[in-house]
Design a binder for these strands. Structure first.
Lengths: 165, 165
DNA sequence: ACCATACGGAACTGTTTTAGTACTGTTTAG
DNA sequence: CTAAACAGTACTAAAACAGTTCCGTATGGT
């Protein structure tokens, strides 16, 4: 359904929060309370992020987690890779086996990969730092083909974007 | 997990096949056999496509389906909209309720919407006609921000794209 | 007029994925 | 030594998907 999983969503929240105080150590408990999530859930996410070297963990009393790199160097693609089980890609390539490639010669796969590339790049272009700052560098990605005027930040345009044709 | 559903995948296959003979009428049975899918499944997909005016149906003996418009005017976003239940968007906006917006001021949502826009545009830029033709107009979508040189079209780079940094 | 063919729609079922929990172990500051 | 906090594994419940079945309706050919 073309959605990121909730865990990935939480991951962005968690990292964004940590990025607001990059120097401090954040315990899973603290993050859970601040973000209104369950401690085990937060813990699970942090572990996965740790395995992918996005955060460092410090065990023991008064331990916690810290960003492993400056927030500018962590982007959405990193988070997705860390938290989504399956490897990145919109399709499993049109049915896995060679079922499809009979007649169309399956140019389709090439085209899906091209789309994947664009999507991935969109994710790479937004860093955790961008997520908490107004919208600096990330603004670059909107200029590609946006037609309408920029929606007001407070506007409740939740999921559905403007839809041409 | 950032995948399109199988039904959507089938939809692209079906429409691509139909686009290879836009003038003919294609029955669900014929399409199923050609593509190696189950008839009921193909039927389900075609029904959804019909509801969204991507195909026209002709009932009765020797009936079938035909593209409702030239294949250049049907793009991936159309197919996704027709076949995915939930409205387009990578996030349900960072946990639905206002759980997140406490501390970060939730710039996050804005940024997700920006990413959504890029993704959607990538889908809109590829038509069914592009899917079966070598790769003409679709090539345009790669130029947005490609840094490296274009990968060779035939390269078997299945799901994981090049990963900088 | 009849009937075989083919689409239309709703509902149902089994499977897979996901989210969240529980439990047990390990590390370390005080 | 002990309490706080991370690490890992396994499990359970719920939701989403995929695919199927059944019955209804339309239509072209005989």
């Amino acid at each position: 359904m073309l959605r990121i999983s909730k865990l990935t969503d939480y991951g962005t929240l968690i990292l964004a929060h940590m990025a607001s105080r990059p120097e401090r150590l954040h315990s899973a408990t603290e993050l859970a309370e601040t973000l209104g999530l369950g401690v085990p859930t937060v813990s699970k996410v942090l572990k996965a992020l740790g395995r992918h070297a996005l955060v460092n963990s410090h065990r023991g009393a008064s331990g916690g987690y810290a960003l492993a790199r400056p927030p500018q160097q962590i982007n959405m693609a990193h988070i997705v890779d860390a938290l989504e089980e399956q490897p990145f890609g919109l399709t499993e390539c049109s049915a896995g086996s060679g079922l499809c490639s009979m007649e169309t010669g399956c140019r389709i796969r090439d085209n899906w990969q091209r789309i994947n590339g664009v999507v991935r790049r969109a994710l790479q272009d937004v860093s955790v730092a961008d997520m908490i700052h107004p919208h600096g560098p990330a603004a670059g990605i909107t200029e590609h083909r946006l037609h309408g005027p920029e929606p007001h930040p407070g506007t409740a345009r939740l999921t559905r974007l403007d839809q041409e044709d």
